[in-house]
């Protein structure tokens, strides 16, 4: 079984600016949900159920750093779609469809969303474009029927939902699926010998013209300071008459 894992490079959500540090440049990391997808693919292979794991990401040469992290974790080879422009989820899904058609994986495992734009659309759109079944927000994956089906546990507001999808399928990962391994130094050394294939959208025969455009990005309005009340009675009156919440 061949697994394709698309992943996105995002600004490190855990990066704190260190006081006194000489340089503080923003660091990029693999989107944490995608890291969970990579980890799951590795575990499937370690169980002997997969033979090859291919990683794919979209971005300029700078994202090679995150590609090497994926390779160091254990991904066998990687593809980078050389693209500088800002993409919307639909453009990403179309690029990934072209990669899926080229690579013909048995399953695509990817993060349910990226932590930078929180769109949560690419997996679903990719399934739609390919006409493949999908299981989203999965917290457990089992392959059944000689790897023709996947039984997935989904985390929903109502509880755990168990679904079965025929393969090939798109599976998107939730936080509790696993805890990704850390990259070891021997892994990093091995990663240097693993191939990174660079392709352009033209070579894939796909366009990336976005359907949506971000018009502006703004911080939420600042909250104004609260007022002090003298007594519980005054608080109740204000809650009733001014805030009108009780």
């Amino acid at each position: 079984m061949k697994i394709l894992v698309p992943f996105k490079s995002v600004l490190d959500p855990n990066e704190a600016t260190a006081a006194g540090a000489a340089v503080s440049t923003p660091k990029s990391v693999i989107n944490p949900f995608d890291e969970i997808a990579i980890e799951e693919a590795l575990r499937v292979r370690e169980r002997g159920e997969a033979t090859e794991i291919v990683g794919v990401t979209i971005g300029p040469p700078a994202v090679d750093e995150q590609i090497r992290v994926a390779l160091a974790m254990g991904v066998d080879r990687a593809i980078r779609i050389d693209e500088f422009r800002a993409l919307d989820p639909y453009a990403v899904a179309r690029i990934l469809r072209a990669v899926v058609e080229k690579e013909a994986p048995h399953v695509v495992i990817m993060g349910k969303q990226a932590v930078d734009d929180d769109s949560n659309q690419v997996g679903q759109m990719l399934a739609g474009l390919l006409g493949w079944p999908q299981a989203t927000f999965v917290s457990k994956i089992e392959f059944l029927g000689n790897k023709t089906r996947a039984r997935c546990t989904r985390e929903t507001d109502a509880g755990l939902e168990i679904v079965e999808v025929d393969l090939p399928a798109i599976l998107t990962t939730d936080l509790r699926l696993n805890e990704p391994r850390y990259v070891s130094l021997p892994g990093l050394m091995r990663a240097r010998r693993k191939p990174i294939e660079v392709l352009t959208c033209d070579q894939l025969g796909t366009s990336v013209r976005p359907l949506t455009t971000v018009l502006s990005v703004a911080r939420p309005p600042r909250r104004s300071a609260g007022t002090r009340v003298e007594s519980v009675e005054e608080l109740i009156t204000k809650l009733k008459q001014e805030a009108k919440v009780i």
Binding site: K27, E65, R68, A72, Y182, V183, S184, L185, L188, R192
Partner: peptide, 17 residues
């Protein structure tokens, strides 16, 4: 680049693990 990558990995490993 290779040294920086290795040193970053050490920092990341130690701060997480």
């Amino acid at each position: 680049d290779q040294q920086r990558e290795l040193l970053d990995a050490v920092g990341r490993f130690a701060s997480q693990q």
